[in-house]
Write a protein that binds this DNA or RNA. Sequence first.
DNA 1: GTCTATATTAAGATAGAC
DNA 2: GTCTATCTTAATATAGAC
Lengths: 192, 192
Amino acid sequence: MVDTKENIREKIITVADDLFYRNGYVQTSFSTISEAVGISRGNFYYHFKTKDEILDAVINRRMGNVQRMLDQWETEGKKPEDRIRCFINILLMNKVKIKQFGCPIGTLSTELVKLEHESQEEANKLFTLIRGWLRDQFIALGKKKEADELAMHLLARSQGIATLANAFHDEKFIKNEVKQMNEWLESTIKKQ
Amino acid sequence: MVDTKENIREKIITVADDLFYRNGYVQTSFSTISEAVGISRGNFYYHFKTKDEILDAVINRRMGNVQRMLDQWETEGKKPEDRIRCFINILLMNKVKIKQFGCPIGTLSTELVKLEHESQEEANKLFTLIRGWLRDQFIALGKKKEADELAMHLLARSQGIATLANAFHDEKFIKNEVKQMNEWLESTIKKQ
DNA sequence: GTCTATATTAAGATAGAC
DNA sequence: GTCTATCTTAATATAGAC
Protein backbone atom coordinates (compact mmCIF):
# COMPACT_ATOMS: atom_id res chain seq x y z
CA MET A 1 0.00 0.00 0.00
CA VAL A 2 1.27 3.45 -0.94
CA ASP A 3 1.85 5.89 1.90
CA THR A 4 -0.64 8.54 0.87
CA LYS A 5 -1.80 11.15 3.38
CA GLU A 6 -5.06 9.25 3.84
CA ASN A 7 -3.30 5.94 4.44
CA ILE A 8 -1.07 7.37 7.14
CA ARG A 9 -4.08 9.02 8.76
CA GLU A 10 -5.82 5.66 8.79
CA LYS A 11 -2.75 3.98 10.20
CA ILE A 12 -2.55 6.53 13.03
CA ILE A 13 -6.21 5.93 13.90
CA THR A 14 -5.76 2.15 13.88
CA VAL A 15 -2.70 2.33 16.12
CA ALA A 16 -4.30 4.88 18.47
CA ASP A 17 -7.44 2.72 18.69
CA ASP A 18 -5.39 -0.23 19.85
CA LEU A 19 -3.27 1.80 22.29
CA PHE A 20 -6.30 3.53 23.80
CA TYR A 21 -7.79 0.09 24.37
CA ARG A 22 -4.67 -1.48 25.89
CA ASN A 23 -3.28 1.42 27.92
CA GLY A 24 -6.12 3.91 28.15
CA TYR A 25 -6.54 7.36 26.60
CA VAL A 26 -4.57 9.39 29.16
CA GLN A 27 -1.66 6.93 29.21
CA THR A 28 -1.29 7.04 25.45
CA SER A 29 0.98 9.93 24.47
CA PHE A 30 1.76 11.43 21.08
CA SER A 31 5.23 9.91 21.37
CA THR A 32 3.79 6.43 21.90
CA ILE A 33 1.50 6.67 18.89
CA SER A 34 4.03 8.27 16.52
CA GLU A 35 6.66 5.75 17.55
CA ALA A 36 4.27 2.85 16.88
CA VAL A 37 3.28 4.33 13.52
CA GLY A 38 6.90 5.02 12.60
CA ILE A 39 6.75 8.79 12.07
CA SER A 40 8.26 11.64 14.08
CA ARG A 41 6.30 13.50 16.76
CA GLY A 42 6.53 16.71 14.74
CA ASN A 43 5.11 15.13 11.63
CA PHE A 44 2.26 13.77 13.72
CA TYR A 45 0.76 17.23 14.12
CA TYR A 46 0.43 17.52 10.37
CA HIS A 47 -2.22 14.81 10.55
CA PHE A 48 -3.88 15.58 13.89
CA LYS A 49 -3.77 18.94 15.62
CA THR A 50 -4.92 17.78 19.08
CA LYS A 51 -5.24 14.57 21.06
CA ASP A 52 -9.01 15.11 21.26
CA GLU A 53 -9.12 15.01 17.46
CA ILE A 54 -7.53 11.56 17.49
CA LEU A 55 -10.03 10.40 20.10
CA ASP A 56 -12.95 11.52 17.97
CA ALA A 57 -11.44 9.77 14.95
CA VAL A 58 -11.00 6.59 17.01
CA ILE A 59 -14.60 6.71 18.26
CA ASN A 60 -15.74 7.25 14.69
CA ARG A 61 -13.74 4.26 13.54
CA ARG A 62 -15.23 2.12 16.28
CA MET A 63 -18.72 3.25 15.30
CA GLY A 64 -18.06 1.96 11.80
CA ASN A 65 -16.77 -1.34 13.12
CA VAL A 66 -19.74 -1.83 15.43
CA GLN A 67 -22.18 -0.97 12.63
CA ARG A 68 -20.52 -3.49 10.30
CA MET A 69 -20.68 -6.10 13.07
CA LEU A 70 -24.41 -5.50 13.57
CA ASP A 71 -24.99 -5.68 9.82
CA GLN A 72 -23.18 -9.00 9.73
CA TRP A 73 -25.31 -10.38 12.56
CA GLU A 74 -28.41 -9.36 10.63
CA THR A 75 -27.18 -11.57 7.79
CA GLU A 76 -25.90 -14.42 9.97
CA GLY A 77 -28.94 -14.72 12.22
CA LYS A 78 -32.22 -15.48 10.47
CA LYS A 79 -34.36 -15.18 13.59
CA PRO A 80 -34.08 -12.30 16.07
CA GLU A 81 -33.16 -14.72 18.88
CA ASP A 82 -30.23 -15.96 16.77
CA ARG A 83 -29.09 -12.38 16.27
CA ILE A 84 -29.21 -11.69 20.00
CA ARG A 85 -27.18 -14.85 20.50
CA CYS A 86 -24.56 -13.35 18.17
CA PHE A 87 -24.29 -10.43 20.58
CA ILE A 88 -23.97 -12.70 23.61
CA ASN A 89 -21.34 -14.85 21.93
CA ILE A 90 -19.07 -11.93 21.15
CA LEU A 91 -17.90 -12.17 24.76
CA LEU A 92 -16.66 -15.67 23.96
CA MET A 93 -15.12 -14.67 20.64
CA ASN A 94 -13.13 -11.89 22.30
CA LYS A 95 -12.52 -13.63 25.61
CA VAL A 96 -8.73 -13.41 25.48
CA LYS A 97 -8.68 -9.66 24.87
CA ILE A 98 -11.49 -9.02 27.35
CA LYS A 99 -9.57 -10.90 30.02
CA GLN A 100 -6.53 -8.72 29.31
CA PHE A 101 -8.04 -5.30 28.63
CA GLY A 102 -11.77 -5.41 29.40
CA CYS A 103 -14.48 -4.19 27.02
CA PRO A 104 -13.17 -1.49 24.65
CA ILE A 105 -16.45 0.43 24.82
CA GLY A 106 -16.99 0.11 28.56
CA THR A 107 -13.45 0.96 29.65
CA LEU A 108 -13.31 4.00 27.34
CA SER A 109 -16.64 5.24 28.68
CA THR A 110 -15.49 4.78 32.29
CA GLU A 111 -12.27 6.66 31.59
CA LEU A 112 -13.92 9.57 29.79
CA VAL A 113 -16.44 10.08 32.60
CA LYS A 114 -13.62 10.47 35.15
CA LEU A 115 -11.82 12.85 32.78
CA GLU A 116 -15.02 14.86 32.39
CA HIS A 117 -14.09 14.69 28.72
CA GLU A 118 -16.27 16.49 26.21
CA SER A 119 -16.36 13.41 23.95
CA GLN A 120 -18.20 11.38 26.61
CA GLU A 121 -21.47 11.59 24.72
CA GLU A 122 -19.78 10.77 21.43
CA ALA A 123 -18.31 7.62 23.00
CA ASN A 124 -21.72 6.72 24.44
CA LYS A 125 -23.07 6.50 20.92
CA LEU A 126 -21.25 3.16 20.71
CA PHE A 127 -23.43 1.88 23.54
CA THR A 128 -26.52 3.51 22.07
CA LEU A 129 -25.96 1.91 18.68
CA ILE A 130 -25.90 -1.60 20.18
CA ARG A 131 -28.72 -0.79 22.60
CA GLY A 132 -30.99 0.29 19.74
CA TRP A 133 -30.10 -2.75 17.67
CA LEU A 134 -30.83 -5.13 20.58
CA ARG A 135 -34.08 -3.30 21.23
CA ASP A 136 -35.09 -3.86 17.60
CA GLN A 137 -34.45 -7.59 18.00
CA PHE A 138 -36.62 -7.78 21.11
CA ILE A 139 -39.36 -5.84 19.32
CA ALA A 140 -39.17 -8.39 16.51
CA LEU A 141 -39.68 -11.03 19.20
CA GLY A 142 -42.94 -9.35 20.18
CA LYS A 143 -41.52 -7.74 23.32
CA LYS A 144 -42.25 -4.18 22.24
CA LYS A 145 -43.10 -2.92 25.72
CA GLU A 146 -39.99 -4.22 27.51
CA ALA A 147 -37.66 -4.13 24.50
CA ASP A 148 -35.44 -1.28 25.70
CA GLU A 149 -35.34 -2.65 29.23
CA LEU A 150 -34.25 -6.06 27.96
CA ALA A 151 -31.62 -4.46 25.71
CA MET A 152 -30.16 -2.52 28.64
CA HIS A 153 -30.24 -5.64 30.78
CA LEU A 154 -28.14 -7.57 28.27
CA LEU A 155 -25.73 -4.67 27.83
CA ALA A 156 -25.27 -4.41 31.60
CA ARG A 157 -24.73 -8.15 32.01
CA SER A 158 -22.04 -8.06 29.31
CA GLN A 159 -20.32 -5.07 30.89
CA GLY A 160 -20.27 -6.70 34.31
CA ILE A 161 -18.84 -9.91 32.92
CA ALA A 162 -16.12 -7.98 31.08
CA THR A 163 -15.22 -5.93 34.17
CA LEU A 164 -14.83 -8.95 36.45
CA ALA A 165 -13.13 -11.15 33.84
CA ASN A 166 -10.64 -8.31 33.42
CA ALA A 167 -10.13 -7.72 37.14
CA PHE A 168 -9.62 -11.41 37.91
CA HIS A 169 -8.05 -12.25 34.52
CA ASP A 170 -10.50 -15.13 34.32
CA GLU A 171 -11.65 -16.57 30.99
CA LYS A 172 -13.57 -19.46 32.48
CA PHE A 173 -15.89 -17.03 34.21
CA ILE A 174 -16.85 -15.58 30.81
CA LYS A 175 -17.79 -19.03 29.48
CA ASN A 176 -19.89 -19.72 32.53
CA GLU A 177 -21.78 -16.44 32.41
CA VAL A 178 -22.34 -16.62 28.66
CA LYS A 179 -24.03 -19.96 29.17
CA GLN A 180 -26.29 -18.43 31.80
CA MET A 181 -27.08 -15.45 29.59
CA ASN A 182 -28.17 -17.80 26.81
CA GLU A 183 -30.43 -19.63 29.28
CA TRP A 184 -31.85 -16.29 30.40
CA LEU A 185 -32.61 -15.48 26.75
CA GLU A 186 -34.45 -18.79 26.27
CA SER A 187 -36.68 -18.28 29.29
CA THR A 188 -37.30 -14.63 28.41
CA ILE A 189 -38.47 -15.55 24.92
CA LYS A 190 -40.78 -18.23 26.28
CA LYS A 191 -42.52 -15.91 28.76
CA GLN A 192 -46.13 -15.14 27.73
CA MET B 1 -9.64 17.53 66.52
CA VAL B 2 -5.98 18.31 67.06
CA ASP B 3 -3.76 18.31 63.98
CA THR B 4 -1.44 15.49 65.00
CA LYS B 5 0.70 13.77 62.40
CA GLU B 6 -1.71 10.82 62.38
CA ASN B 7 -4.75 13.04 61.92
CA ILE B 8 -3.26 14.81 58.92
CA ARG B 9 -2.25 11.48 57.44
CA GLU B 10 -5.82 10.27 57.85
CA LYS B 11 -7.14 13.47 56.30
CA ILE B 12 -4.88 13.03 53.28
CA ILE B 13 -6.10 9.46 52.78
CA THR B 14 -9.75 10.51 53.07
CA VAL B 15 -9.31 13.34 50.56
CA ALA B 16 -7.28 11.16 48.17
CA ASP B 17 -9.89 8.40 48.40
CA ASP B 18 -12.60 10.81 47.31
CA LEU B 19 -10.50 12.38 44.53
CA PHE B 20 -9.41 8.99 43.16
CA TYR B 21 -13.08 8.04 43.01
CA ARG B 22 -14.27 11.24 41.34
CA ASN B 23 -11.40 11.98 38.97
CA GLY B 24 -9.40 8.75 38.80
CA TYR B 25 -5.94 7.93 40.09
CA VAL B 26 -3.89 9.33 37.21
CA GLN B 27 -5.86 12.57 37.09
CA THR B 28 -5.36 13.24 40.78
CA SER B 29 -2.08 15.09 41.33
CA PHE B 30 -0.18 15.88 44.52
CA SER B 31 -1.18 19.51 44.03
CA THR B 32 -4.86 18.62 43.89
CA ILE B 33 -4.69 16.56 47.08
CA SER B 34 -2.51 18.97 49.07
CA GLU B 35 -4.68 21.88 48.03
CA ALA B 36 -7.83 20.04 49.12
CA VAL B 37 -6.21 19.09 52.45
CA GLY B 38 -4.90 22.61 52.98
CA ILE B 39 -1.18 21.92 53.20
CA SER B 40 1.67 22.79 50.86
CA ARG B 41 2.95 20.39 48.24
CA GLY B 42 6.36 20.26 49.94
CA ASN B 43 4.87 19.33 53.29
CA PHE B 44 2.93 16.59 51.57
CA TYR B 45 6.05 14.53 51.02
CA TYR B 46 6.65 14.43 54.74
CA HIS B 47 3.55 12.23 55.02
CA PHE B 48 3.75 10.22 51.78
CA LYS B 49 6.88 9.67 49.76
CA THR B 50 5.24 8.46 46.54
CA LYS B 51 1.85 8.49 44.88
CA ASP B 52 1.82 4.70 44.99
CA GLU B 53 2.05 4.88 48.77
CA ILE B 54 -1.10 7.00 48.89
CA LEU B 55 -2.86 4.51 46.62
CA ASP B 56 -2.01 1.63 48.93
CA ALA B 57 -3.22 3.63 51.92
CA VAL B 58 -6.48 4.41 50.09
CA ILE B 59 -7.01 0.75 49.18
CA ASN B 60 -6.32 -0.18 52.79
CA ARG B 61 -8.85 2.36 53.99
CA ARG B 62 -11.44 1.03 51.56
CA MET B 63 -10.76 -2.51 52.78
CA GLY B 64 -11.62 -1.38 56.30
CA ASN B 65 -14.78 0.33 55.13
CA VAL B 66 -15.94 -2.71 53.17
CA GLN B 67 -15.20 -5.01 56.10
CA ARG B 68 -17.20 -2.78 58.44
CA MET B 69 -20.06 -2.73 55.94
CA LEU B 70 -20.10 -6.53 55.72
CA ASP B 71 -20.00 -6.77 59.54
CA GLN B 72 -23.00 -4.45 59.71
CA TRP B 73 -24.93 -6.53 57.21
CA GLU B 74 -24.23 -9.60 59.33
CA THR B 75 -25.95 -7.81 62.21
CA GLU B 76 -28.75 -6.27 60.14
CA GLY B 77 -29.74 -9.38 58.23
CA LYS B 78 -30.82 -12.34 60.34
CA LYS B 79 -31.15 -14.75 57.44
CA PRO B 80 -28.51 -15.14 54.70
CA GLU B 81 -31.00 -14.06 52.03
CA ASP B 82 -31.58 -10.82 53.95
CA ARG B 83 -27.84 -10.24 54.05
CA ILE B 84 -27.53 -10.76 50.31
CA ARG B 85 -30.36 -8.30 49.87
CA CYS B 86 -28.26 -5.77 51.82
CA PHE B 87 -25.58 -6.17 49.17
CA ILE B 88 -28.05 -5.75 46.31
CA ASN B 89 -29.59 -2.68 47.91
CA ILE B 90 -26.30 -0.83 48.23
CA LEU B 91 -26.70 0.06 44.55
CA LEU B 92 -29.88 1.90 45.51
CA MET B 93 -28.35 3.52 48.59
CA ASN B 94 -25.46 4.92 46.53
CA LYS B 95 -27.39 5.52 43.31
CA VAL B 96 -26.59 9.23 43.07
CA LYS B 97 -22.84 8.72 43.36
CA ILE B 98 -22.86 5.64 41.11
CA LYS B 99 -24.67 7.62 38.45
CA GLN B 100 -21.99 10.32 38.69
CA PHE B 101 -18.80 8.31 39.24
CA GLY B 102 -19.56 4.61 38.84
CA CYS B 103 -18.55 1.96 41.36
CA PRO B 104 -15.46 2.97 43.36
CA ILE B 105 -14.10 -0.57 43.35
CA GLY B 106 -14.84 -1.35 39.71
CA THR B 107 -13.57 1.92 38.24
CA LEU B 108 -10.33 1.74 40.25
CA SER B 109 -9.77 -1.84 39.14
CA THR B 110 -10.38 -0.92 35.49
CA GLU B 111 -7.96 2.01 35.74
CA LEU B 112 -5.18 0.04 37.45
CA VAL B 113 -5.33 -2.73 34.84
CA LYS B 114 -4.75 -0.22 32.03
CA LEU B 115 -1.92 1.37 34.01
CA GLU B 116 -0.40 -2.09 34.55
CA HIS B 117 -0.07 -0.84 38.11
CA GLU B 118 1.59 -3.09 40.67
CA SER B 119 -1.23 -2.51 43.17
CA GLN B 120 -3.75 -4.21 40.86
CA GLU B 121 -3.88 -7.30 43.02
CA GLU B 122 -4.12 -5.26 46.18
CA ALA B 123 -7.13 -3.43 44.75
CA ASN B 124 -8.67 -6.74 43.71
CA LYS B 125 -8.78 -7.76 47.36
CA LEU B 126 -11.77 -5.42 47.65
CA PHE B 127 -13.62 -7.58 45.15
CA THR B 128 -12.35 -10.76 46.76
CA LEU B 129 -13.54 -9.68 50.21
CA ILE B 130 -17.10 -9.17 49.00
CA ARG B 131 -16.97 -12.26 46.80
CA GLY B 132 -16.00 -14.43 49.76
CA TRP B 133 -18.67 -12.92 51.97
CA LEU B 134 -21.38 -13.47 49.35
CA ARG B 135 -20.15 -17.03 48.86
CA ASP B 136 -20.51 -17.63 52.60
CA GLN B 137 -24.11 -16.43 52.47
CA PHE B 138 -24.93 -18.78 49.59
CA ILE B 139 -23.29 -21.65 51.46
CA ALA B 140 -25.50 -20.82 54.45
CA LEU B 141 -28.42 -21.09 52.03
CA GLY B 142 -27.37 -24.65 51.25
CA LYS B 143 -25.86 -23.79 47.86
CA LYS B 144 -22.38 -24.98 48.70
CA LYS B 145 -21.60 -26.31 45.23
CA GLU B 146 -22.57 -23.18 43.26
CA ALA B 147 -21.81 -20.66 46.03
CA ASP B 148 -18.80 -19.02 44.39
CA GLU B 149 -20.46 -18.99 40.99
CA LEU B 150 -23.52 -17.27 42.43
CA ALA B 151 -21.34 -14.77 44.28
CA MET B 152 -19.47 -13.88 41.08
CA HIS B 153 -22.77 -13.62 39.21
CA LEU B 154 -24.09 -11.04 41.67
CA LEU B 155 -20.83 -9.11 41.64
CA ALA B 156 -20.86 -9.00 37.84
CA ARG B 157 -24.49 -7.89 37.68
CA SER B 158 -23.72 -5.05 40.10
CA GLN B 159 -20.67 -3.98 38.12
CA GLY B 160 -22.59 -3.94 34.86
CA ILE B 161 -25.38 -1.89 36.37
CA ALA B 162 -22.89 0.63 37.78
CA THR B 163 -21.03 0.93 34.47
CA LEU B 164 -24.15 1.61 32.41
CA ALA B 165 -25.81 3.86 35.01
CA ASN B 166 -22.60 5.88 34.97
CA ALA B 167 -22.28 5.98 31.18
CA PHE B 168 -25.91 7.03 30.67
CA HIS B 169 -26.18 8.98 33.93
CA ASP B 170 -29.37 7.05 34.61
CA GLU B 171 -30.66 6.42 38.16
CA LYS B 172 -33.92 4.88 37.07
CA PHE B 173 -32.06 2.07 35.38
CA ILE B 174 -30.46 1.17 38.72
CA LYS B 175 -33.89 0.90 40.41
CA ASN B 176 -35.18 -1.30 37.63
CA GLU B 177 -32.22 -3.67 37.67
CA VAL B 178 -32.13 -3.91 41.47
CA LYS B 179 -35.74 -5.06 41.38
CA GLN B 180 -34.82 -7.75 38.86
CA MET B 181 -31.80 -8.84 40.89
CA ASN B 182 -34.02 -9.31 43.93
CA GLU B 183 -36.39 -11.41 41.85
CA TRP B 184 -33.45 -13.45 40.60
CA LEU B 185 -32.42 -14.04 44.22
CA GLU B 186 -35.91 -15.26 45.15
CA SER B 187 -36.04 -17.79 42.33
CA THR B 188 -32.46 -18.92 42.96
CA ILE B 189 -33.21 -19.65 46.61
CA LYS B 190 -36.36 -21.58 45.68
CA LYS B 191 -34.56 -23.86 43.20
CA GLN B 192 -34.25 -27.48 44.40
C1' DG C 1 6.47 19.49 61.03
C1' DT C 2 5.74 22.97 57.61
C1' DC C 3 7.24 26.00 54.31
C1' DT C 4 9.52 27.94 49.70
C1' DA C 5 12.44 27.03 46.06
C1' DT C 6 14.00 24.13 42.73
C1' DA C 7 15.46 19.89 40.09
C1' DT C 8 13.76 16.65 36.72
C1' DT C 9 10.97 14.57 33.50
C1' DA C 10 7.47 14.12 30.16
C1' DA C 11 3.58 15.72 28.12
C1' DG C 12 0.96 18.61 24.44
C1' DA C 13 1.91 21.71 21.02
C1' DT C 14 4.40 25.04 17.57
C1' DA C 15 8.08 27.01 14.27
C1' DG C 16 10.63 26.67 10.68
C1' DA C 17 14.27 24.16 7.82
C1' DC C 18 14.34 20.87 4.08
C1' DG D 1 4.81 16.09 3.83
C1' DT D 2 8.43 15.08 7.01
C1' DC D 3 11.92 16.34 9.90
C1' DT D 4 14.57 18.65 14.11
C1' DA D 5 14.48 21.99 17.50
C1' DT D 6 12.05 24.32 20.78
C1' DC D 7 8.28 26.38 23.73
C1' DT D 8 5.12 25.77 27.58
C1' DT D 9 3.01 23.57 31.14
C1' DA D 10 2.36 20.47 34.73
C1' DA D 11 3.62 16.56 37.06
C1' DT D 12 6.58 13.84 40.60
C1' DA D 13 9.98 14.52 43.68
C1' DT D 14 13.93 16.68 46.54
C1' DA D 15 16.73 20.21 49.31
C1' DG D 16 17.12 23.04 52.67
C1' DA D 17 15.43 27.20 55.41
C1' DC D 18 12.53 28.15 59.40
